[in-house]
Design a protein around this nucleic acid. Structure first.
Length: 244
DNA sequence: TATAATGTTTGAAC
DNA sequence: AGTTCAAACATTAT
């Protein structure tokens, strides 16, 4: 569920509730005051990276699905929803996610240029931030939500394989042209992820994530928990260059 | 059945 | 006081 493109799919799927008034609310969320919601009209559903935003007039809900969150539209799971929003034309149920209510507007709080899925995505800003962290490993930097909002571990692994960069490469040692290519690929792959996910064909397009052998050279992949984030990296030590 | 996984925040420990 | 790290949360497939 969690990576940026999946949130874009959610945003599109709930468009039928955009502009609609919340009829009733329930859920086991302890962080928000559910009484704020009934009779409020949804102004927009938005996304910023892995954040799913439900915007009302003077406030908005920030939903994060973490590792296991899920949602159902006009359907329910056996367990209690974290938050359930009922509209005249249907309902949205959110499970095991984190929900926060923030005052003001999303535009006041978010920098849309960091979101790889957003039209405002600014690769130059990403490059600038990477230059400020020369000693960071690229596997960690790609997961930094302030640089690549929406990029998760799957996207990380696929990008690094595509651009032939070893996950433990130091950001500052990667040649400028290669780094630009990598930043560009962050957006390109994220959109391919989006299309494949919509067709339920995401997995079959993985070339690195969870893979055992490299399709390019036929040698076995390395699986290692890399960087300070210690997330799984699948990579080919033959094809992917280590810059250090 | 135990484990690990598309993730982040929190607060203790250093 | 700044950094690091484990714990917590929660679901599902292998």
């Amino acid at each position: 569920m969690p990576e940026g493109p999946s949130i874009v799919i959610l945003k599109e799927a709930v468009e039928l509730f955009s502009g609609k008034k919340v009829v009733s609310v329930s859920g086991n969320s302890k962080k928000i005051d559910l009484h704020r919601l009934p009779s409020q009209k949804v102004i927009a559903f938005r996304s910023w990276g892995k954040h799913f935003l439900i915007c009302f007039k003077d406030f908005f809900l920030k939903v994060h699905f973490l590792m296991f969150g899920s949602y159902l539209i006009n359907d329910r799971k056996p367990q209690d929803p974290r938050l359930s929003l009922v509209f005249k034309n249907g309902e949205l149920n959110l499970y095991s996610c984190s929900v926060n209510l923030l005052e003001g507007t999303a535009d006041e709080l978010y920098d849309w240029s960091t979101d790889v899925m957003n039209d405002a995505w600014d690769p130059k800003a990403a490059k600038k931030k990477l230059k400020e962290r020369p000693t960071a490993l690229i596997c960690d930097a790609l997961l930094e939500q302030d640089i690549f909002s929406g990029v998760g571990n799957i996207i990380k692994n696929e990008i690094l394989y595509r651009v032939k960069v070893h996950p433990e490469s130091a950001v500052g040692k990667i040649p400028a042209a290669k780094l630009s290519r990598l930043i560009k690929e962050a957006r390109i792959y994220s959109f391919e992820f989006l299309e494949w996910k919509k067709e339920y064909k995401l997995r079959e397009h993985w070339l690195a994530h969870t893979k055992k052998t490299c399709k390019r050279c036929d040698l076995p992949f390395t699986l290692k928990h890399t960087g300070s984030k210690k997330r799984r990296s699948f990579f080919c030590t033959n094809c992917q260059i280590l810059y250090n």
